[in-house]
């Protein structure tokens, strides 16, 4: 008997891909060769093994994330197409959209499309469907005082909807926050978030919204009755090494509070156990 055909030739034979003469010789061979006949069965077995691998259904957080990204893209497109904001520039179709989003973005457009807005498009993820309000955190322009006030007022009125009524902005600063230095570090991140040169150099990778941030922000806001305006996807240096952590910035009157949390806070439950550090800037 001639030597066995290559496994690949058998796989091609099974797919009818061989040239006629080659096909004939393989066919003749398997007539009398149980080993190669078995190999052909086993090749079909490979297909069965592959077909049997179950695929998990889409997790809800992924579905929510996709919805969020798309409505973000829709808002960006709407803003780009109507830069002067003739009518409500964000969501004209939804008259019941929360009011706190648009007044601020209009206001910001009023004094020249702010650099922060450009930063947001280039390197920052936005949580929720609205426009960025991070400016209210760090700006000392007099207009923003009014805007912040407005945000505050609206937000306290419809507290249950705060997670959706405006958006927090996020950065990935690469900071490794430490117990001793986190307030200083957080101040630096906050300053940097207002400076488009430094934030602008972030990689594309850092612009993706980490899973769980949205849930975590909602949990923190619900628990502490505060409004997270900026999230830094960073790290925390604990006793057992550094681990991923999120620094959540909230406005507190004239100042800013920072809360460094472990990503487990996305699961809800006792917030205190997820808080790594807490302080005022």
């Amino acid at each position: 008997m001639t030597s066995h055909p290559e496994v690949e030739a058998l796989a091609f034979f099974a797919e009818d891909l061989l040239e006629p003469d080659e096909e004939r010789s393989v066919a003749d061979h398997i007539e009398t060769c149980a080993i190669c006949a078995t190999t052909i069965d086993e090749l079909a077995g490979v297909t069965r093994v592959l077909a049997d691998v179950p695929a998990p259904t889409m997790p809800q957080d992924v579905a929510d994330l996709l919805d969020g990204r798309i409505s973000e893209a829709v808002s960006e497109r709407a803003a780009a197409e109507r830069p002067t904001g003739g009518r409500d520039a964000t969501r004209p179709a939804e008259s019941d959209a929360p009011a706190s989003v648009t007044p601020i973005s209009r206001k910001r457009r009023g004094f020249g499309l702010p650099k922060l807005f450009m930063v947001a498009a280039a390197s920052v993820f936005v949580i929720g469907a609205g426009t960025a309000v991070v400016g209210s955190l760090m700006s000392d322009e007099p207009d923003m005082g009014a805007a912040s006030q407005l945000l505050e007022d609206t937000a306290t009125e419809d507290a249950p909807d705060t997670a959706r009524s405006y958006s927090a902005e996020g950065v990935a600063s690469g900071t490794v926050y430490t117990e001793d230095g986190f307030t200083t570090q957080a101040s630096a991140v906050l300053d940097q978030a207002g400076d488009d040169d430094s934030v602008g150099v972030q990689s594309e990778e850092s612009a993706t919204l980490p899973q769980g941030v949205r849930e975590c922000v909602a949990h923190v806001e619900a628990t502490t009755d505060s409004h997270v305006t900026l999230v830094d996807d960073a790290r925390w240096e604990g006793p057992e090494g550094t681990d991923r952590a999120w620094a959540l910035f909230t406005r507190n009157g004239e100042g800013v509070d920072v809360l460094v949390v472990d990503p487990v806070c996305a699961r809800g439950g006792d917030l205190d156990s997820a808080v790594l550090a807490e302080g005022s800037l």
Binding site: V7, L10, A11, L43, G45, V46, R48, V49, D52
Partner: peptide, 14 residues
């Protein structure tokens, strides 16, 4: 691809 996978997956076949 199937030919290449065969050695590593043969033991898993139904």
């Amino acid at each position: 691809g199937r030919a290449k996978l065969l050695p590593s997956l043969a033991h898993l076949r139904n």
